[in-house]
Computed example of a mutant assay.
Amino acid sequence: MDNDRFDEVLRGHLNSGGSTPIDPDAPLKDLGLTSMEAVELLFDLEDEFGVELPDEAMTDETFSTRRSLFSKLEQVHATKSAQS
């Protein structure tokens, strides 16, 4: 998984924007991620990385921080790669 690509997609859905590093443990809600933006972010990440997050991953915990979201996406990506 590419951290830079992930951050580029994520930044497009946050108020911070720009190239400022995203604190991996900062609450995404505090950075401007609304529930509607989270849905759009999900679609963009799935398209960018060619994966589909399972329904059980659609939790507040998954979308709480950059670290938690990246970790879940990484797990799904690894599972998909192992199945290929």
Rank of each mutant, 00 (worst) to 15 (best):
S19K: 07
A57E: 02
T65P: 10
V51P: 01
M58L: 15
L45G: 06
E48T: 15
F43S: 13
S68K: 14
M1R: 08
A82M: 06
H77P: 00
P54L: 01
F43W: 03
K29F: 01
D55L: 05
S64W: 06
R5G: 11
I22A: 02
S35V: 08
L41G: 15
I22N: 05
S84V: 08
F49C: 00
P54R: 11
D2P: 10
L45V: 12
F49Y: 05
D2C: 07
E40G: 15
D23T: 04
T20W: 05
G12D: 12
E56S: 10
D44P: 07
G50I: 09
L53K: 05
G18C: 03
L42K: 15
D4H: 04
D30P: 00
L10M: 13
T65A: 10
L73K: 00
Q75N: 10
R11V: 12
A78G: 00
G17S: 13
L41H: 11
M1D: 02
S84R: 11
D7P: 11
L73H: 00
L53R: 01
D2Q: 11
E46T: 00
S16N: 12
R67I: 03
I22M: 06
S35N: 07
P27C: 00
L42Q: 14
E37S: 15
L33I: 14
L28V: 08
N3Y: 05
A57L: 01
G12I: 08
E56Y: 08
E56H: 14
F63M: 06
T34W: 09
E8V: 06
L41C: 08
E74A: 11
L53A: 06
S68R: 15
R5W: 00
D2H: 10
T62C: 07
G50L: 09
S81R: 14
E74M: 00
S71F: 04
G50R: 13
E61F: 05
L42R: 15
T59W: 07
P27R: 15
E40N: 14
S16L: 13
L73M: 11
L42G: 10
L31F: 07
S64H: 02
P54F: 03
T62N: 10
Q75T: 12
P27G: 00
P24Q: 03
R5D: 09
M1L: 13
R67S: 12
T79F: 08
D25I: 04
G32W: 02
